[in-house]
Write a protein that binds this DNA or RNA. Structure first.
Lengths: 166, 166
DNA sequence: TTGATGGCGAAATATTATTGCGCGTGTCTG
DNA sequence: CAGACACGCGCAATAATATTTCGCCATCAA
């Protein structure tokens, strides 16, 4: 399944679809240098193998009224596995929390949150996050502005590293 | 242009396309309860108005060999606007840096980085980031595991807040 | 050499996107 | 209060795209 290695065409496909997930299969085929049918087969294979997890429209949060973006560093009282996963489960249930990553170091978790305004976030912070079981400390930092926001894979590096094989 | 307010159908469209950016227009139309032609027109309008910035395949970084994910908190020596934007420009040029946000508080920037392995990241850290002009301090935290990663807009909250109008 | 395997591309078919047009609804205006 | 207008819908027709089918060629192993 995921044991199959990717060749340079597969990587091009992934790079193109990461950049434009709604590209037509004909267009994609043209760009990667093969015809449409095998191109579509490769895409399906990449999807099935889990290289492509899904497709998403990038929606402008600000235009929709989500003006505020906040990073929250969370420290827990207990780092027992069951307590960690309990907290993670909580995070998954909070709509304002868009990302939750467990970290090494002094802080246990970093959360990326969005909110329509500061008071909404403050309410969430005091009523939900700080009151959650096992939460010892929360330090928040407001995002003043974004300079770069391109989640995903740096395919330029991939090509350099793999020029040897395939 | 973006002065036009969205009705509940528009919001449904955005929510659906955020969840599945490759949904066919017929399927989308069915889900939001209108026929295909007006649905497509709405999508185009939303794109042109900037509500939809683009479409992207979600690629599994781990499968592609990017095992390491790191948050880096960066402090600068000077917070003069020109120095800030110089640093931001640098970040845009670094492939390993996928996100760069300016923060309030003690730290000036938070960077989300990916790398194939720890040594690649360490090389980047010491050779590039720490050597960059104006960088005063960098604290890094390795991501141990991800509990939630859904960049985007929490449409469930949007609906609750807007049930009044439209 | 020969048979099996895998991937390609041309052609045919099924889906989907897109355009053009007439209809109904709500609003503004005389 | 009627009529003109603007807006957005949906039907039907057309264009583009996706998807299947099938035969060909290269590679590899026996």
């Amino acid at each position: 399944m995921s044991g199959t290695r990717l060749d340079s065409i597969d990587r091009k496909i992934l790079a193109e679809l990461q950049a434009d997930g709604r590209m037509t299969n004909v267009e994609l085929a043209k760009r990667v240098g093969i015809s449409a049918p095998p191109c579509l087969r490769r895409v399906r294979t990449l999807e099935d193998a889990g290289y492509i997890r899904g497709y998403h429209a990038e929606v402008d949060a600000r235009e929709l009224g989500f003006e505020v973006q906040v990073f929250a560093m969370v420290g827990l009282q207990s780092q027992a596995e069951s307590d960690l996963s309990t907290f993670e489960e909580r995070c998954r249930g909070w709509s304002l929390v868009r990302e939750c990553h467990m970290l090494n170091g002094e802080v246990d978790f970093i959360l990326k949150c969005v909110a329509p305004d500061l008071s909404t976030f403050q309410t969430f912070l005091t009523q939900d996050l700080l009151k959650a079981d096992n939460v010892a400390s929360v330090k928040t930092s407001l995002v003043i502005r974004g300079a770069k926001d391109e989640p995903g894979v740096p395919f330029d590096i991939l090509e350099n590293r793999l020029t040897r094989d395939a």
